[in-house]
Design a protein around this nucleic acid. Structure first.
Lengths: 157, 157
DNA sequence: ACATAATATATGTATATACATATATTTGTA
DNA sequence: TACAAATATATGTATATACATATATTATGT
């Protein structure tokens, strides 16, 4: 017999704030806090492979295009954090031989960016760990997850 | 007559990813993306006053204690991003005369941190703008906001 | 009381990030 | 065609962040 006990900790308790001025205020803080928490846990996994979250995300974007190349502009467009410097993240990936730039024949301004086979292997190693992490981080039923996804999509308007 | 049209953009469209491997994967990305988006918009407001999001949050923690002091440790405990360096954020606030350190009599290891009247004034100026921003960023009804808060609390487990 | 562990904070350092600006190329237009 | 505007990317620089380590003080066990 298994007994699962889930203790739900309200955001008020997590950050020791007795009361928020409104549910909206609370939501902003709840979202940022939960987002940070998740990023932190994912980072723990990536650290073992010497990858940052940003580098990992770019690598996944590159895999999404593979065997076609992406451009830096396409990467910026698809990144979660639009402000970060895609060009320098690609620099880092190139340095680690996980990605490679080639010149775009049609438009010489563009740099084509490919994922290397070393990059593909690394992602493959991470896929399973990341999936296990997802489940352990999210203490919700599938139905709740769907509701949450819909609400977040609506939130952004 | 006012006509409000809200166009809901799914996370798939926002970051141009056709399909996620599961609703759980989608949720992780949705959360981090939405959190970043909100942080970004809040930052836009704070930039006018030359504050970073972290500095603002620490300042609010200090106000929450006022007229009592906080300690650096208490700040770390209540911060959204546990990894950041509270000590150096307090340095920055002190440099701007928004906060002040004094020595704790009982425990000489602790630094008591107070918010200054300049700090209180600055927060007061920001309160209204931040509240307006909250409402404009969150395109949800109060009931939906409550559901979302509960789900996020449950998610973290 | 003394040594050791634990705690609170600060600092050093490498890397990452935000933002402004530079460079190269392509596009639009008079 | 020539020239300004737009686009794609890269780079310079100040600041922020993550992580390890140092320092000072207090708590704890013998």
């Amino acid at each position: 017999m298994y007994i699962h006990i889930f203790v739900t900790m309200r955001i008020e308790d997590e950050i020791k704030q007795e009361k928020f001025s409104s549910e909206y205020t609370k939501l902003l803080i709840n979202l940022v806090y939960t987002g940070n928490r998740i990023s932190f846990k994912t980072n723990e996994i990536l650290k073992e492979k010497n990858l940052t979250l940003q580098q990992y995300n770019v690598l996944r974007i590159l895999r999404g295009q593979h065997p076609n190349p992406a451009t830096v502009n396409m990467i910026i467009d698809r990144m979660l954090d639009k402000m970060s410097n895609a060009s320098r993240i690609v620099d880092k990936l190139e340095l680690k031989k996980l990605a490679q730039r080639t010149m775009n024949k049609e438009d010489k301004r563009c740099a084509d960016v490919h994922i290397t086979s070393k990059g593909l292997d690394l992602l493959l190693e991470l896929d399973e760990k990341v999936k296990v992490n997802e489940r352990s981080v999210i203490h919700l039923t599938l139905k709740e997850v769907k509701t949450l996804n819909d609400l977040l999509d609506k939130l952004r308007g």
